[in-house]
Structures are given as C-alpha cells and as structure tokens.
Amino acid sequence: MKKLSTLFFALCLLCVTHVGNAQAIKKADLVNAWSKMTNMFLTTTRDMPAEHFSFQPTKDIAPFGDLVGHTIGANYLFGPTVNGPKVERPEFDAANKKEVVENMEKSFKYIADAIDQLSDDNLNDEIEWFGSKMTRLKAILSMTDHVEREYGKVITYARLKGVKPAGGRGW
C-alpha cells in the first residue's frame, strides 16, 4: 500500500509539473491554425462543382451552398469576439458558386485580419461570449471549433458528390 501511495504521489507531482510547464497558445499559433482551416475550407468549397451548390442530401438537410453560407454568417457573427468590427452577414445567392466562394473568402479574411490585430496579451482579455464571461482565447477556440465542425459537414457533402476534400490539420 505504501508503494502504491508513493507511486500515486509521484504521478501527481509529475502531472502538476507538466501542467506548470505547458506551452500557452500564442497569437502566432492562432494565425497559423486559422490559415490552415481557411485553406481546407476554401479549397474544398472551390472544388465542389457549381451544379452541386444546390445539392441537398435529404429534404431535412440544408443544401451545400446554404451550409457554407452558415459558416460565412457565423464568421461575421463571431468576428467581434476576435476584436473585429461588427459586420452584417452579406446577402448572396447560396446556389451560386461564384457568390458563395467570394463571400467565403471575405469572411475568412475578416477573421484573419482581426486575429492579426491582436497581441498575445489580448488573448487573456475577459469578454462577453453569448451571455458568459470568458477569455478571448477561449471564445476564439470555440469559434474555431465551430468552423472545424462545419468543415466536417462540407467534407461529407463533397464526398457524396465524388469531390476529394482538402487535407490538413487545424493546429
């Protein structure tokens, strides 16, 4: 029993030491991750043929263009979290590939520009996030989580239409 207690204590000490030395996420990490996510999302969206922007797997699921349009709107909704100016979601025809891709490019650049204006210290700012207070970093991580989930849906639509999705990693 004494050996087990000593082992447990040693493991706890190792964990505490490791957590204390954990590397913090920096602005440069966010810039890199957002760039990779942007590339994956835009590449796959651009590769989807124009005739499939109205593709709807079932009547209960949004068409491809609307799915991408949701991410465009979310980028503008989440922008002030990053410290971007408030911008309304633009109007566009979600079945029109050219309009969707142009607006997607603008929405991802909007977030990239906002991230670029931050400092490492700004990531620790406490902000309001949908009724909760949290650090700006935590809210940005929630935003990137949303984009990654939406990209997972884009991958599914693309594969259903024989389009190979862009590979890569978020972080």
Rank of each mutant, 00 (worst) to 15 (best):
R159D: 10
R89G: 04
T58I: 09
L77C: 09
R136G: 06
K3T: 13
M134E: 09
I155N: 11
F78Y: 14
I25M: 13
K86G: 07
D145I: 08
T58S: 15
L160Y: 05
R149Q: 14
S119N: 04
E88V: 03
A10N: 05
S5T: 14
V101M: 07
E105V: 02
D125N: 15
W129S: 11
F78G: 00
I111H: 04
T44K: 10
D125E: 14
P90Y: 07
I127H: 10
Q117Y: 03
P90V: 10
S35E: 12
L4Q: 10
G69C: 03
L123G: 00
E51W: 05
G152V: 02
L14R: 02
S142I: 11
N124G: 03
D121P: 00
F130K: 13
F55K: 06
K2A: 14
F9Y: 07
E102L: 12
A24R: 12
Y151V: 03
D116N: 13
T58Y: 10
N124W: 00
K26T: 11
A114M: 06
Y157F: 15
E128D: 15
R136Y: 09
E99I: 04
G168R: 01
K97C: 05
Q23A: 11
R46C: 07
G20E: 07
E105H: 00
P90G: 12
S142P: 01
V19L: 15
A114I: 03
V16F: 10
D125L: 03
N32K: 15
W129K: 09
F53D: 09
K27G: 12
K27R: 14
L7R: 09
G69P: 03
A94Y: 08
D121K: 14
A62H: 12
M1L: 06
A28Q: 12
F55G: 03
L4G: 06
F130L: 11
W171C: 04
Y157K: 11
H70L: 01
Q56H: 02
I72Y: 04
R89N: 13
R136L: 06
L137P: 02
Q23V: 09
S142W: 07
R89Q: 11
A94F: 10
I127M: 13
M1H: 05
Q23P: 01
P63K: 13
V163E: 03
T44Y: 08
E105D: 04
A114N: 07
T135V: 08
I61W: 11
F8V: 14
F41T: 08
S132W: 08
I115Q: 05
L160C: 05
S5L: 15
F78R: 00
T58G: 08
V147S: 09
D47Q: 14
R136V: 04
E128K: 13
E105I: 00
G131R: 06
D125C: 03
H18S: 14
E105P: 00
N124E: 05
A114C: 08
L123V: 03
F64N: 01
G73A: 10
